[in-house]
Design a protein around this nucleic acid. Sequence first.
RNA 1: GCCGAGAUGGCGAAAUUGGCAACCGCAACUGAUUCAAAAUCAGUCGUCCGCAAGGACUUGAGGGUUCGACUCCCUCUCUCGGCACCA
Length: 770
Amino acid sequence: MIKYNPQKIEKKWQKEWEKKKLYQAKDKVKGKKNFYHLTMFPYPSGDLHMGHWYNYAPSDVYARFKRMQGLNVMSPIGFDAFGLPAENAAINRNLDPKIWTYSNIKSMKKQLDSIGVSFDWSREVITAEPDYYKWTQWIFLKLYEVGLAKKEKVLANWCPHCKTILANEQVQDGRCERCDTVVEQKLLEQWFFKITDYAQKLLDGLEKIDWPETTKILQRNWIGRSEGAQIEFRIENSEYRIKVFTTRPDTIFGATFMVLAPEHELVKKITKDAQLGQVNNYLEKTKKKTELERIAEVKEKTGVFTGAYAFNPATKEKIPIWISDFVLPHYGTGAIMAVPAYDERDLEFAEKFGLPVRKIDLDDKILSELEKRGLAERKTSYRLHDWIISRQRYWGAPIPMIYCQKCGIIPVREKDLPVLLPKIKDYKPSGTGESPLAEVKDWVNVKCWKCSGPARRETDTMDTFVDSAWYFLRYADPKNKKEFVSKEKLKDWLPVDIYIGGQEHATKHLLYARFITKVLYNYGYLNFNEPFVKMRHQGLILGPDGNKMSKSRGNVIDPDEIVKKFGSDSVRMYLCFMGPYENGGLWDPKAIVGVFRFLNRVWNLINSKFQNFKTQNKELDKIFNKAMKKIGEDIENLRFNTAVSELMKLLNEIENKELAKDQIKIFLKLLAPFAPHLTEELWREVLKNKKSIHLEKWPEYDSKLIEEETIYLIVQINGRTRDIIKVPRDLNESRVRELALSSEKIKKYTAGKEIIKFIYISNKLANIVL
RNA sequence: GCCGAGAUGGCGAAAUUGGCAACCGCAACUGAUUCAAAAUCAGUCGUCCGCAAGGACUUGAGGGUUCGACUCCCUCUCUCGGCACCA
């Protein structure tokens, strides 16, 4: 008998499938429903690691299963090609980011193919292609048109290493999520998308989508809705008013002072001359603080008095106005009424600066009273920030705007898209707050299309997350030159039926994609307002030592090496088998031999049994039916680990029995989504089938064969199992009682005792209470 | 501090409406095969007592509900993830 040689058969079938275009999805197939199966596209880092495998292999099992179930499955793939990491890596190697990115794409494609994933490469989307980013720019223009894209001077997170502004979502613990450098606050004119306008819609939409509850909670917390009131405070000897947001208007009688954020616009207007020096001093100091320093100083409150006073609208009392950086400029109104008796932070501040703390009775009615007097209104605040999309970097889609000396800021006309990213000599970020594109004079200087006068292009590029916020739409119609996607193709494929990817994108990509979808829906470009009907996450694969795999730790497992040793089918299947998909887990280098042995046994079984198929065996049919039911249900629910376990059990049970050809076929079909190469080889070469096993129908179980006529009934005494008796299905209680009590084992316990209660759970268990 | 997830043999884990805890696999051990090793095959494998039959105990800790709890409720411990001066 020939030995199982995965390397040989895997390459062979991968080529064959490609040649036959087995996984290319047609937009319409008669009698088949379309199913859009999407796995997050990779960013072309150069190497495919185990994490990619864990994302794509089990996800592919699901796609293959759906295809066998008779759905017209589209499983597209592409590359998230623009962005900081690629650019940084290229600069480190002294390479053109484009050359670096595209050579990575080339090698990653090969590696992706080695997984044996049923991707439809004909729909490949690369976000750095002009054909693609033309439409990213178009989306920008649409947002600009309706006032959702704006440019303003804002204090934003500046990474001094990457030399660019970052969105709030890309800063973690005060550090750049890419390079871990401490982020500074910099005042720059930035383009941003007003995602805050959609805060409520983003919140509401969560109710109707099938996503992991934990991810919804992450998004809800990130959006951070809180209800309260905005209350106006009059300032002594001034026409200015201070508006504050509070969730506790009922505590207003205890408000003994006010605090403004240093950035608050009224600070300069109300500060008294005597305090001007100390206030300016304080403003200077806060400006220099990094986000990290602010976090570190949480415990120690700082602040200065402005010299001005306001009137508490409830008590009419005169209260001092202070400035402190514990009040955040971008939340609420950037000003608070301080109620030290009810708020820990206000208390700390009061104690440090000797301000009064007054305990009072809470007053539920004060808000409506203030409303009547026109001093308050009910309001909802969100923690969500607007999405800053300007990047002072080269490797991204240029923002399609022009600055004309006469006409001001004007958008590039749609017919002039795409604004091509020019070739450039020096990619390095300048660090001046301007993109290196600013140096490309013949690109920057343009004629204004309105007045033909001299104008300059916007030199910032867009955040990569803009590219990935809509890529799933393009797969439906990747070559369309006239539209980002045609109405017809949208109808064929969207929204995405299932989306599989990591949870780390919960408050970034997954939020942005929902936002862009909602905007496009709102303005009539889409007919659905949630992009991903169903979302599931894969867990994280850790190194054998339990740490995140990293080169510096030396715990990186190279998938290519494992594939060389065991074959891709084994790696696929082991990844499925190692535990619940959403948990991830440690890569145990020894454990993979378990599935490798299993596949060898399958190989040997089918090669040896081929000669002497016998007629069917009823008992075996039952065993098959149970397995068919369980495996199908498990894959449907992405419980790949128990599905593999069931396949192993099935093999254990059938291995030494006479098998009919139909039963062997069923077994191979059940295994096909997991081990596509091995099953194809056996299907075609041993069973001599003409067509691919991957075009076969998923075997449906016969429910009549699932229920046994005789069942094993557990007999317990006081909740402890004492015997198991064989009885006919659906036996009535009195007969069961009779049988149970006549068992020798049970008699031992019941002898001379009174039966207090007899509990019977049909077809499962009887419990005798003594 | 707030929000969330989790804790089951030496290890990964199973136990989808409360009903035989530990399926399936890894590792380990015993045996067969082999000159030998690998591979393969047959078996043992939660802990304790016992030659065995059998019995007792066991799902992070403690309590509760129930005929019956890994599963439900309360209290606590630890681990991981997210947010974090959000008024």
